[in-house]
Design a protein around this nucleic acid. Structure first.
Ligand SMILES: [Zn+2]
Ligand SMILES: [Zn+2]
Ligand SMILES: [Zn+2]
Ligand SMILES: [Zn+2]
Lengths: 120, 120
DNA sequence: TCTGCGCTTGTGATATTATAACATAACCAA
DNA sequence: TTGGTTATGTTATAATATCACAAGCGCAGA
């Protein structure tokens, strides 16, 4: 598991976008530079980046973003503006009070959709 | 927007399953009774059920469950066991403390993946 | 009752998202 | 160098979801 030019390039595209990007849009961008890119190319890179905590999947959008915190893994909370598309990544929320007793959380998906302060 | 036999049938299948079900699995079940079912049939019914708050999508699984609370809409928090597949639906968590200032949440996706009390 | 309109469903096609399977290449340690 | 592991290339296909248009149904008002 090491950072490679390919993976670094995918990360760079995510960072440059600054907002959630679809896998096939990444693929199109990659193809425009190196015609040989194919779906597994981008999905593997995304899997790697998520595994090491450099990217997250926005589950309800089927899109991917660069991590804004460089935390190790899990636990991101995303505030996604439906108007301008901006994503504000936070983390550190405590375990919810109303969790079922005995439930041991391994991974959480927390995505809030609404309007950011600028878009009210 | 009214409840119809078709929609009631989809809801019944979700309730009977008691766990997240994939759209195409629903479709297979429907086909075994009425050969004419096609993807839009099931997706439309699911859209209706979610709109009226009788079902939820489990975003990270691309699956659907019957609502366990009959709340009006939004705000479900799902605790999903990765071993036995059970889902415990809760709601009522307060707005997170670390939300960006001025963000107005319209819809939240909250899914916790881990092990339920029985599966430790 | 009849008619017209809107909602619901049928149907075929297609778009979007993601993975399987196997081959080749690059990297690195012994 | 040589052999194992990791990474990438390549082809195909699976899984998920939507579009577009036609047909049917249910009901309000003429
Ligand atoms: Zn992050
Ligand atoms: Zn905004
Ligand atoms: Zn519910
Ligand atoms: Zn369990």
């Amino acid at each position: 598991m090491r950072m490679t030019p390919l993976r670094r390039n995918v990360l760079a595209l995510l960072v440059k976008a600054g907002e959630p990007v679809k896998a096939y849009d990444l693929l199109d961008q990659m193809r425009s530079e190196d015609g040989s890119a194919k779906p597994p190319t981008v999905y593997r890179s995304l899997d790697f980046l998520m595994e090491v905590g450099l990217a997250h999947k926005v589950e309800a959008l089927n899109a991917y973003i660069a991590c804004a915190h460089c935390h190790d893994k899990g636990g991101a909370e995303l505030y996604i503006c439906g108007k301008c598309g901006s994503v504000d990544e936070r983390h550190g929320a405590p375990e919810p009070l109303n969790a079922p007793t005995g439930f041991e959380t391994q991974r959480s998906v927390v995505e809030h959709y609404g309007l950011c302060a600028k878009c009210h």
